Computed example of a mutant assay.
Amino acid sequence: MEDKELIRKCQTGDKEAFYELISRYHPFVYKFLVKITEDEGIAEDLTQETFLKIIKNIDKYDLDGKAKFSTYVITVSKNCYIDYIRREKKWMQAIPIDENSNIEDISTNVEDLVLDKMYNQDIIEEIENLTDEQKLVIKMKYIEGLTLKEIGDKLNLETKTVKSRIHNGIVRLRKILWKGDGYEKD
């Protein structure tokens, strides 16, 4: 059975379809999470959390949208992992998501790449070399998970100033990332 047909059945509440969907994607999600967590127990917990979220929100998945279901599943699992890191305050020890992996479309924009790579100790060290203003707002946005408005309120800055500082810091980090990956981009 094709994914679309299976998902359509799930959206109507077919329990057997849910079982088949989970059976089909469980190894895919579990292997991905083992790779980024390097811990089978945490990976299994996050895999279960991923499927609970998928089941709960299956009716929101757009069958006619551009994103493949596999991309949607990996996005949900990546977000579960990021939530776990934030909950457990283990961001300093986290393993980055490898954007060169065979899993398609994990991170397609620069901010996602920075978020994924930020957990790598080398990048955290590079963040320390940014200006104090850039360093502070990037940590508040990507590590603490604050919105631009919340950051602005805490620092008594305009939202556009916060956005500008984050953008400039990301540009600088992007150059570091490209050079570190062998992609000279100046």
Rank of each mutant, 00 (worst) to 15 (best):
M1I: 08
E2T: 11
I7G: 00
I7L: 08
R8N: 09
G13L: 12
G13W: 12
D14W: 00
I22V: 15
R24V: 13
P27L: 03
F32C: 02
F32T: 01
F32W: 01
T37P: 03
E38W: 11
D39R: 14
D39G: 08
G41C: 02
G41N: 07
G41W: 08
L46E: 06
T47V: 02
F51L: 00
N57H: 13
K60V: 11
D64Q: 12
F69G: 03
T71M: 03
I74Q: 01
I74L: 13
I74R: 00
E88M: 14
M92I: 08
D98N: 15
D98R: 04
I103Y: 14
E104C: 06
D105M: 14
S107F: 10
V110L: 14
L115G: 06
D116T: 13
M118I: 14
M118G: 04
Q121P: 12
Q121R: 15
I123W: 00
E125I: 15
L130G: 01
E133G: 11
K135L: 06
V137S: 00
I138W: 01
K139R: 11
E144K: 09
E144V: 12
K149N: 10
I151V: 05
I151H: 00
E158C: 02
R165Q: 13
R174N: 03
K175C: 05
W178F: 09
D181A: 11
